[in-house]
Amino acid sequence: MNSLGEFIETVERERKTLEVHTNDDAILEALRRQFETRNVDVRHQSLGSLDEPGFVIIRDVTGEFRGALGLDGFQAMLSPRIHPPWELAETADDRTNLFSFLEKTLFTSYRPRQMLATSREIEDRAWRVGTGRLYTGFERATALATQREVYDRFGSHGSLTVAVFLGDDWTEPVPEGVTVVSETGSELGDYWFVVFDGGDNELEACALLAAERRPGEFYGFWTYDPELVERLVTYLETTYDVS
């Protein structure tokens, strides 16, 4: 990978299909609405004589079957209040293929509020694990300033290695135990990311990466795929002076 944008392009190319088998138009419409801001093709198949409730089949970009479940279960799973994505990752560890569908699907218009919520999930996880690498891209020094206290605490928490990345200059004192990487005019000014490598446990690895395409509007993905997280960590470490 040569840029953060390439990571997003890679995920972009893995466009998935959600095949909805139902005779219920309302359910179909609800799912279409739910996925319209993600790069997912929602297709409809009639359930015919099969009993309701229907089911969904998830396919990868080649049309290959990646997972299936009942519509009732799927809708429950999509409801973030019941199951935040990170909880799902923990309860369904043997279902990586299906869940890699729900993650690694691009979101095309996250608001700062949604970005913050997802960032917080990753930071919370890093805090709980207390070891490993946490790399956070703030875009701007002003954004780091608002999280200053949080990262002050991170810097001295457990054996976490913490680095923050900025696309402009950080003029205030550096939080203790935190490496500040700032490169004015670089890609760092355009990307919001939080990457945690999981420490000793790759099942805890997770990352969020998004480009701010318009002010306050983000385009990107979140993932707990350990390989992808590792590639992000490696990219950041080889591209920037993290040590």
Binding site: P53, I57, A68, L98
Partner: peptide
Amino acid sequence: DVVTAKAASETGAIAAP
């Protein structure tokens, strides 16, 4: 595809490849 998905919906399970 269909039989696997149908069974998953009946048992409340998630069917993997």
